[in-house]
């Protein structure tokens, strides 16, 4: 029987840029992002895939990076909150909408909320309110309340639709 991997040779795209590194087999994507790559925008809270604070996108799909092995990112595209703004510092329409709609107070859940919402809008640019609620159901906020968050996603969808027509 051949030995398994203790160390994983990891190559992936992170926010559009190539990353080549080694990690241990049991390291989670959140640990690699926060501890090795110093990207602290991704928050970790429940560690049981319930709260959504640690949401990042892998090949466009939202995953719980707290319990998603970095091993799984081999050859894939990983997107985090740090990659959303444009090089000139312009915020992504979702980030701007969260500000405009006061969709955060403490801000701890916000990176996960925005990444989850991005996955939705990339797949379904004009979601209904019910579709937004169904999609965002697994992201928990404990201070803002959900009404402004849903409003921000709706606003961002509108802005993005206008931008894509330009």
């Amino acid at each position: 029987m051949t030995d398994g991997m203790r160390i994983v040779a990891l190559k992936f795209q992170l926010n559009g840029k190539p990353v080549e590194m080694e990690c241990e087999a049991e390291e989670t994507l959140a640990e690699v992002l926060r501890n090795h790559l110093n990207l602290n925008g991704t928050k970790v809270s429940c560690e049981v895939q319930v709260c959504g604070a640690c949401t990042v996108l892998v090949d466009g799909l939202p995953v719980s990076s707290c319990t998603y092995l970095a091993y799984e990112a081999r050859g894939k595209n990983v997107a985090t909150i740090e990659g959303l703004e444009k090089p000139d510092g312009t915020l992504h329409p979702l980030q701007q909408a969260f500000i405009d709609d006061f969709a955060f107070q403490c801000g701890f859940c916000t990176p996960g909320m925005i990444m989850a919402a991005k996955a939705l809008l990339d797949e379904n640019p004009q979601p209904t309110r019910a579709e937004i609620i169904h999609h965002m159901d697994g992201n928990i906020c404990r201070c803002t309340g959900y009404v402004p968050i849903v409003a921000a996603v709706q606003r961002a969808a509108g802005v993005m639709a206008k931008e894509s027509k330009k």
């Binding site: 029987m1 051949t2 030995d3 398994g4 991997m5 203790r6 994983v8 241990e24 087999a25 049991e26 390291e27 989670t28 959140a30 640990e31 926060r34 970790v44 560690e47 707290c66 092995l69 091993y71």
Partner: peptide
């Protein structure tokens, strides 16, 4: 963050190999 305990990851090429690995470990 709570770390996971150490483990090794195995990559079987087919079901028979996966079954052998599971039996072995």
């Amino acid at each position: 963050m709570m770390p996971l305990r150490r483990f090794q990851m195995h990559q079987p090429k087919n079901v028979a190999e996966a079954a052998e690995m599971l039996a072995h470990y």
